[in-house]
Design a binder for these strands. Structure first.
Length: 343
DNA sequence: ACTATATGTCCAC
DNA sequence: TGGACCTATAGTC
């Protein structure tokens, strides 16, 4: 269930924790038998594209990143996948990155620095374990974990649209996004979930982006102006950049949160993603519409509605996000973007 | 011990 | 469009 920001965060963690190091690779669960061919190779770094993670393995550390000799481990976390880390102090800043479960009561084995991380026995469901000089990473529940050559990696990339978290110095990514949306009769709610249109959005970013744009999810892409699409792209870049930095999806502006609710109990459970940040916006204040069905809209008080688009539940405010007023709302009464995140 | 749920994707019909 | 799949939770009986 991680969206693109989570995968970029993972790539950064792998870069810092394993980049350029010789590693051991194994499959405690046994379902990733190709782990054996990676064992003892050098993990050059990590690459995130949309929700896809690539870990390039080479026989020696001096192999080029575009060498055809590389073996890329392609990982997609799907709905349940996650990586759990353990290692020496400062190895990575989060214990687990991936499926954001409530882990109340679970032992924080990876965080307890008095425990020797080398002696941590993997759960039986660990598909892939990577062990480096300073720590280890355990992968469970991925929808994909496979070894690919350069060609296989490229074929995955070819199926993906632009990723808002990749640098876009010449604006070509934004242009590709705008083109694809405006040429389609499909609803914007479905287009945003299509990884060939934009890579990395999931169900939360979809719902929240549409609210911030004051856009009805059922409006066809071709009905949107280029300016609306461009602003939506820029908003996405801001939202996901914040998400990648903090490990949290936060889309609400501070003035739309209830300040009293910000004091929440945060003493239990396993730390994951951005939990280590004491100033984090609590989850119940983070969204405008996602999972807020039957609750009042933060702006107008109308009950948030839900339905289904692209086989996933979509949430929206029937008053703030109307088809008829979408253009008027865009620039005037309810300026959605640009805006600034609190931190 | 069961069930529902979750930020996802693919494939068969 | 419906189901299958990958896993670990919390809640219910």
């Amino acid at each position: 269930m991680p969206e693109g920001h989570t995968v970029h965060r993972l790539a950064a963690a792998f870069d810092r924790g394993f980049g350029g190091q010789r590693v051991r690779a194994s499959s405690p669960q046994g379902r990733f038998s190709d782990a054996a061919q990676l064992d003892g190779a050098v993990l050059l770094g990590a690459e995130a594209v949309g929700k896809h993670l690539f870990l390039p393995f080479a026989p020696t550390a001096d192999v080029d990143l575009d060498s055809p000799a590389l073996r890329h481990v392609h990982v997609h976390l799907g709905l349940y996948g996650s990586w759990t880390f353990a290692g020496e102090p400062g190895f990575v800043d989060a214990h687990a990155i991936g499926a954001p479960r409530l882990r109340i009561g679970e032992q924080e084995e990876g965080l307890d620095e008095s425990v020797d991380w080398r002696r941590i026995v993997p759960r039986e469901t660990v598909r892939l374990r990577i062990v480096g000089p300073r720590g280890l990473a355990d992968l469970t529940g991925p929808t994909a974990c496979e070894v690919m050559d350069a060609e296989g990696r490229q074929s995955v990339l070819d199926r993906l649209g632009p990723d808002p978290l990749r640098p876009d110095p010449d604006g070509s990514a934004r242009r590709r996004f705008v083109e694809k949306v405006r040429r389609s009769r499909t609803t914007i709610g479905a287009l945003l979930m299509n990884q060939a249109v934009v890579a990395g959005i999931g169900n939360i970013y979809r719902a929240e982006l549409l609210f911030r744009a004051r856009l009805d999810p059922f409006v066809p892409g071709r009905d949107l102006t280029a300016g609306m699409c461009e602003e939506m792209w820029e908003d996405l870049v801001a939202l996901m950049t914040y998400g990648a930095r903090t490990g949290r999806i936060v889309t609400t502006q501070p003035e739309h949160r209830h300040i009293e609710a910000r004091i929440v109990e945060r003493s239990r459970g396993t730390r994951q993603n951005g939990d280590e940040d004491p100033d984090v916006v609590p989850r119940e204040e983070s969204f405008y519409v996602y999972h807020r069905q039957s609750l009042p809209c933060r702006l107008c008080g109308t009950t948030i509605r839900f339905g289904e688009i692209a086989a996933r539940t979509v949430f929206w405010c029937p008053r703030c996000q109307t088809a008829r007023s979408r253009r008027a709302n865009w620039t005037r009464e309810n300026p959605a973007a640009p805006w600034a995140l609190a931190r």
